[in-house]
Write a protein that binds this DNA or RNA. Sequence first.
DNA 1: GACGAATTAGACAAGACTGTCTAAATTTGT
DNA 2: ACAAATTTAGACAGTCTTGTCTAATTCGTC
Lengths: 229, 229
Amino acid sequence: MKLHVSPDTFPPRGHEAKRLSIVDSAAAVFCREGFAGANIDLIAAEAGVSRQTIYNHHGDKEKLFVAVVRDLTERCNVGIFATIATFPDQPKDLEADLIGFAVRLNQNCICSRDGKFLRKLIQTEGERYPELFAEWREQGPGRTWPAIAARFARLAYGGYLAIEDPDVAARQFLGLVNAELQTTFMLGGSPREDEVVQSATNGVRTFLRAFGKRRSAVSVEKQTALAGA
Amino acid sequence: MKLHVSPDTFPPRGHEAKRLSIVDSAAAVFCREGFAGANIDLIAAEAGVSRQTIYNHHGDKEKLFVAVVRDLTERCNVGIFATIATFPDQPKDLEADLIGFAVRLNQNCICSRDGKFLRKLIQTEGERYPELFAEWREQGPGRTWPAIAARFARLAYGGYLAIEDPDVAARQFLGLVNAELQTTFMLGGSPREDEVVQSATNGVRTFLRAFGKRRSAVSVEKQTALAGA
DNA sequence: GACGAATTAGACAAGACTGTCTAAATTTGT
DNA sequence: ACAAATTTAGACAGTCTTGTCTAATTCGTC
């Protein structure tokens, strides 16, 4: 708004810090108590600010909620794309590398604080804010799934996997890798590290039993024929 | 309470019907609005009873909530075990039969009204009522998973599948079969029938690529045609 | 038709929460 | 150190909700 001197940070420095603190606390309280049960006074107390400051920053409860979801979606996307960047394009040990990727995806994106919060808000309030979560769907899954599928397609093109539909394979990969964590996710808990590794290991092994190439060298000509289909 | 004449139905006939109606409406409202946001007057209106009747039947809001979860858990269990009873123990066409089972499981248990409600209540309130949902965990997954795993074990013993750990295989089966429905589930929506069938078909095909026996199974030609592509 | 139990509508007190307002205190940039 | 902007604590009105109470009404059964 005010931009007479410093083009870097128009508002005072503590301002943005407080905004962050508010959104963080709000995310936690909205998740714990639900939108209706969330108490602005409690959010203020957890954020270490006064209630009035929350109203100064965000207007009202509903706008605060929207800000929380937007923030979480963006932060999660950053995490997911950072993790996708570690996808093993030229694996030395396909099984081990895919397990590693699956574990990173779980730990950094799905079981992270932001990931858990976003997931729960989607589950609990998704039906009440159709347009907001339609936006999430575009920005989130709409962008990340194609990115993951593209990596699997590349792996297939490189002769490491025999998959027909990379989109299906990508979703099945995640389904397998999280197969043993569903109950924990449902109750909102965080699985222990060894559970994540266990589930990922079992999932990747099954995935490779279905899509892995026996001990093939790179038979690119057959691959290209498949990739086009 | 009063049992002077008829040993069959002590309270009048309409009594139990109202109780049912209350629990049904309460389930819907608790799901839509969350526990804190659920309004007793609204539940009463949807159930077509007066607010006082709800208090007569259930005491207070929290007891009503517990009654809802117990009822839903029990009803869902009945549905799940009925569906498990249709598991193909001696399949003519393994792929088609497993797809059929997966679709039934989805339609009758996971996407049913009760299934959706119970899942959402677990997701939204699971952390607030640890002991209640610990009970659910025992009565629900604790009983149904072993039953499903036992069926897969039998299929393996019969020579139809090559699986090492039936528990892992059972969970992976469901993970695969629902792989393409996750986003819809997350937002609380119901997938269309054709989406369920599509996801089940893709899931079962991958499952059989991993665990199916090449030779001994009946529909080998269909397998190889599809899998070999 | 009559009796007893269940149900209903509505009023009600007590408490909780949102969002606004004000005046004082604190922080920030210069 | 000064001036502007921000933050704070607290009071406040208005609204909503739960759970209770009462008196009238309806329902099921004999």
